[in-house]
Design a protein around this nucleic acid. Structure first.
Length: 150
DNA sequence: GCCAACGTTGGC
DNA sequence: GCCAACGTTGGC
C-alpha cells in the first residue's frame, strides 16, 4: 500500500465537491509521470491527502482513498472537453484516471505549516517548481501530517 | 538529438 | 497580475 497526495484547485473541484459526490473519477491528468503513478503504483485502498492549490489558503483539507484502479480517461476522447486529446486513440488510450472516494475532511493544514516541519522538508509536493498534480507521500510524511492534524 | 519557444502551474 | 519553474513541441 502506498500513500498519495492529490492536488486540485477548489474553484474547479474541491473537497466540498468530493464530500457531496462521495466518489469521483480523477480525470484530466495530462502529465506522464502522474499518469504512471496511477497506472503502475496506485491500488484501491491506498490513502491520499486532498490538497487545495491556487486558492486563498493552499493546503491539505481532507483524506481520500483510491476506489478503482486506473482506466482510460474518457475526457481524452471528448471533443468538447478541455482535456480532449486529438492524439489519443480508443484502441490505445494515452491518459488514465483512477476513482477516488471521500473519507473525511480535516482542518486546513496550510502550506506554510507544512513547510515549517523538518520531517517534511523533502516532501515532493513542497519542492520548488513541483508541478505534479499527483505525488507520492512516504509513510513517515503521512504519519507526520496525521499528527499535525490532531 | 538538441534547444529555443511556448504554454501551464501555482505561490505570492 | 507577476514570475519562476518545468514539460512539451517543433525546427533544424
Amino acid at each position: 500500500m502506498k500513500y498519495w497526495l492529490f492536488k486540485s484547485e477548489p474553484s474547479a473541484y474541491g473537497i466540498d465537491d468530493l464530500a457531496r459526490d462521495g466518489v469521483t473519477a480523477w480525470t484530466g491528468v495530462r502529465n506522464y509521470q502522474a499518469r504512471n503513478f496511477m497506472r503502475d503504483q496506485m491500488r484501491p485502498g491506498d490513502p491520499g491527502f486532498f490538497y487545495h492549490s491556487s486558492c486563498e489558503e493552499p493546503g491539505i483539507v481532507g483524506i481520500i482513498e483510491v476506489a478503482r484502479p486506473a482506466y482510460a480517461d474518457p475526457t481524452q476522447f471528448d471533443r468538447k472537453s478541455r482535456y480532449y486529446d486529438p492524439g489519443a486513440a480508443r484502441e490505445e488510450p494515452r491518459w488514465l484516471n483512477v476513482d477516488v472516494k471521500f473519507v473525511r475532511r480535516t482542518r486546513v493544514v496550510g502550506l506554510d505549516e507544512l513547510r515549517r516541519e523538518k520531517a517534511l522538508r523533502k516532501m515532493q509536493v513542497l519542492q520548488r517548481g513541483n508541478r505534479l498534480s499527483i505525488t507520492p507521500v512516504t509513510p513517515a510524511e503521512w504519519k507526520c501530517i496525521m499528527r499535525l492534524m490532531k
